[in-house]
Design a protein around this nucleic acid. Sequence first.
DNA 1: CACCATGTTCCTTG
DNA 2: CCAAGGAACATGGT
Length: 284
Amino acid sequence: MPELPEVEVLVRHLNRVLPGKKILHVEVLRPKSVRPNQPEEIETKLKGFQFVRVERRGKYLLFHCSGPRPSHSNLVIVGHLGMTGRMYVFGKIEPLPKHAAVVLDLGPERFVFEDTRYFGRFSLDLRAVSLLGPEPLGGGFTSKHLAFGFAKSRQPVKTRLLDQTMVAGIGNIYASEALFRAGISPRRKCYSLSALEVQDLWRSIRAVLRQAIAAGSTVPLNFAGAGSPDGLFYYGRGPGAPASYRERLLVYDRHGEPCERCGAAIRRITQAGRSSFFCPKCQR
DNA sequence: CACCATGTTCCTTG
DNA sequence: CCAAGGAACATGGT
């Protein structure tokens, strides 16, 4: 589920339900999900703490918590959804999902971090967060910043956009979408982009992310979905995807379909081991 | 069985 | 030394 817009929508939701809730008990069912911490460490350190607010940094979720006594220092739990992670607050009657990784007892409810592939995290390790580049929708991300990040790079621009230390939160879907919007081929070398192209791309990145957040915010999320916490948010383009979502992805996973703008067939290529989608006619 | 998947990190290569 | 590419991680869908 993991690019910036999806995490942003999730964070907004969690901020409506988590603040003020106290962690009465912690259960780590998948030790890998809390790495590099130990399960016992997580279970003992989190117990008794209370959620204050949830913050997003790139694709990371930062759960700010306060201790049971003022003498306790505050605590930040670092969450990341990986490829398949989900987080939600459930009534206790609901059965735990097959791949529940961490469960927090909140009293009448329970917070669940579920992660099929266990690429995600729920730890106390802030190192990766400290290395992140600026927020693409924040003031620290300017077209000059982007130009600087491209200046000496011989990487294809698509690959570079996925570097979280340059700018935080862009993933495989929105990298392709932003390049399509800007009319730039994913294969272009970073240093070859003109100042105007960089500015177009900068604008496109922000527009694409903003639109996705807006779309996700309008989808009726069902975080209490009975047995199917997935009814809430679908991040692909399958038959289960909300129409608003499907329509917004103009090139991603549309290999062979006609380009929305010119009708040419969308192409799929592999870059740095990952699929990129683009219109060979519109994007140069 | 083969190939694909929204991400990050580690190791190797050049 | 650095940049870039690829594999690994683990599971499920097609």
